[in-house]
Simulated assay, not measured.
Amino acid sequence: MHPDSPRRVGALGRLTVNRPRVLVSGGSGFIGGTVVPLLNSAGVRIRVLVHEQSVEAGRYAEVVDGDLADPSSLRGICRDVDAVLHLASYVGKDEDRCGAVNVDGTRGLVQEARRAGVDRFVQLGTAAVYGNGPFRDLAEGAMEPRPVSPTSRSRLVGERFTLEAGGAVLRPYLVYGTGDRWVMPALLRMLRALPSGLPERGAALLSLTEVGSLALSLTRMAVAHRARGAAGVFHACPSRPVSLRELVAAAHRHLGFPLVGGDQSFEQARQALVAAGCDSHILDLLGVDHWLDATRLGAMGHHPPEIGLSAGLAAHAAWYRDQLML
């Protein structure tokens, strides 16, 4: 489904009076690539912060250059802005880069927003800050974060600047859809390495969020009138988790992924992945319960109409088939 579809635009509504101006960091990334067209279709004035990437400046009005790793380059970018959508982050193993972008960059952007008097700051976080699991029906505040990677540790630290400034952080777990370079490719690698069976019958329960639904939650939080005063951590995912077994069946049906039956222990699956030359961390992501409770986001009125996994994969099937050469 294209981000400019009537379902998305109608759900957000067109803002024709007192059109807000929103600064978006990471506008050319996976999530930003859906958020920016959605804001544009709703009549929001958009200022996109970019660094070493190109965006369609003419279409989205205003593009500003800046580097989150260089706070001096951010000076003045929040002037005349009503809200900030901070979607940019560094995902990788470089500790220094994680600190420069995810910690110092977030701090600098929050400081610029406060200096300019911006009263709405919404950051895209990640449920990876909770660690490898397992957890079921996890509500915000019910568990202390236990990040295990440089990326998730630094993103957790960066979140604190947003929260201390009265902003909101939306934490999805796994996000799929057009632009996804992580979730479905990892699933495909795992299935090819485990032809003999899924770990523990594929019973793990996972919170998967379609990219357009996440984009809609983020934009509603940033521009909707009742979003004023919304602060804290919000889980951003459907109310119902899906099992790994359901995910595999849907990926087979819509994307042509291998349909793996059978069963093996978690440890057997890990050994098979290692033998196949795959990163066994895939099992920690997909083979263990990671089920979030998103009731709080729904209570704020910013939980979008849910799109089921089957419909979500079908909507993005052409892109996945092209990118994965299926």
Results as ranks from 00 to 15, higher is better:
F161W: 06
L74H: 00
I31Y: 01
W291H: 13
L194H: 07
L273S: 00
E140G: 02
H252G: 15
H235V: 12
V24M: 04
D82T: 09
E140T: 08
M221Y: 09
A314G: 14
A204K: 00
N18P: 14
T162L: 09
N102M: 04
W182A: 14
G26C: 04
E159C: 00
R155D: 05
D65E: 15
M184E: 00
F234Q: 09
S243F: 10
G277Q: 09
L255E: 12
Q268T: 13
V22I: 15
Q264I: 00
E200D: 15
G141A: 03
Y320T: 10
A83M: 01
R220M: 12
E56A: 14
M184H: 01
M300R: 11
S28E: 11
V148Y: 08
L74T: 04
G76S: 08
C78E: 03
F30V: 03
N132I: 07
A139D: 06
D4A: 11
S196W: 02
G179H: 06
P241Y: 10
A251Q: 01
P305T: 12
V17I: 14
M221N: 02
A215F: 08
P147G: 02
D137H: 10
A69W: 03
V248T: 10
L187F: 01
R171G: 05
R253Y: 12
A314D: 13
G33I: 02
A231E: 15
D284I: 03
H316E: 14
Y173M: 08
A299V: 15
G232P: 12
P71D: 07
V242A: 11
V9T: 11
N132Q: 11
D70S: 13
T162R: 00
Q264Y: 04
A11P: 11
I77H: 05
L309M: 14
R75K: 14
L87C: 03
D4V: 08
A83V: 01
A57P: 07
H290N: 10
D284E: 11
R115Q: 07
M300N: 06
L273P: 03
D289P: 07
S243N: 12
L208Y: 03
V260E: 02
A250D: 04
L23M: 09
L273C: 07
A249Y: 12
D180S: 09
A142K: 13
A299C: 15
S243K: 12
S5T: 03
G312K: 03
A139R: 12
D80Y: 06
S152Y: 00
D293W: 10
C278D: 09
Y173V: 07
D65R: 14
A193L: 08
L85I: 03
L286T: 06
G308H: 11
P134F: 10
S72G: 12
A222N: 09
C237L: 09
G29N: 02
V22S: 06
R114K: 14
T295Q: 14
L188W: 05
H86A: 09
H235M: 13
Q271I: 06
V248S: 05
R136V: 13
D104W: 02
G32Y: 05
L156R: 06
G99T: 06
A250Q: 10
H86Q: 04
E159P: 00
G133K: 01
I46E: 11
D82P: 00
